[in-house]
């Protein structure tokens, strides 16, 4: 019984993945290109940056980058907190 459930779930997953792979858009041709085309056409002009990735990371999606930096800050703070006030040989 248990084995039948496992096989059934795996078969379902396999069928789902197979169907997804067959329905997927053609390789190298993304389904939606409006955003890409916008960044390529206007990014350089709007931000003055040659590097479109930098333009997206630091301008269009700057809030995301700030969260990323805050995560690193929190990590360093956490490590500082873990090692806080541990005295030598005591």
């Amino acid at each position: 019984m248990k084995k039948a459930i496992k096989v059934g779930v795996l078969a379902l997953l396999f069928a789902f993945l197979l169907a997804s792979a067959l329905l997927m858009h053609e390789f190298g041709k993304p389904a939606q290109t409006e955003m890409d085309n916008y960044f390529i056409a206007r990014g350089q002009e709007e931000t003055g940056s040659n590097n479109i990735v930098a333009a997206v990371v630091f301008d269009y999606r700057g809030l995301d980058t700030m969260g990323e930096a805050a995560v690193l800050f929190a990590a360093a703070t956490g490590v500082f907190l873990v090692f806080r006030g541990r005295k030598k040989d005591e």
Binding site: G48, S49, A54, D59, G62, T65, L72
Partner: peptide, 18 residues
Amino acid sequence: AGTIPLMNLAIGLEVFAA
């Protein structure tokens, strides 16, 4: 690129120090 280089500098300092 306006604020992008300045933000890079700030992030560089933050990542280096952290």
